[in-house]
Amino acid sequence: MYNLSNFVHLHFDKPADELGDIEKRVLAKTHERKIISTDVNAAFSAEASFGERVADSIARIGGSWSFIIAFFVFLIAWTVINTIILMTGAFDPYPFVFLNLILSMLAAIQAPIIMMSQNRQAERDRFEAAKDYEVNLKAELEVLSLHQKIDMHVLTELTGLREDVARLSAELSARS
Results as ranks from 00 to 15, higher is better:
D125Y: 08
T88I: 15
A90D: 06
L161W: 09
S117P: 06
R60S: 15
S49V: 04
R120Q: 06
A77I: 08
T79I: 15
A77H: 13
E157V: 04
A170G: 04
K29N: 05
A111S: 04
D39F: 03
F91Y: 08
Q148W: 08
L168W: 01
S169Y: 09
R167E: 02
H147S: 10
V73F: 14
V165N: 02
E32N: 10
K34F: 00
T30L: 13
P112Y: 00
L101I: 11
Q110T: 01
A166T: 01
S57M: 13
K24Q: 09
G89N: 15
I68Q: 15
L168C: 06
P112H: 04
H153N: 14
A108I: 06
F67S: 02
V8L: 04
K24R: 07
L141D: 06
L137T: 05
I22S: 11
V40K: 02
F96L: 10
L161F: 10
S49C: 00
L106H: 03
E18V: 06
A90V: 09
L144F: 13
L141W: 08
L99V: 03
T38D: 07
L99D: 01
D21Q: 13
V97Q: 10
S176V: 12
V73T: 13
I113A: 05
A130D: 11
I58A: 08
S117F: 07
H31W: 11
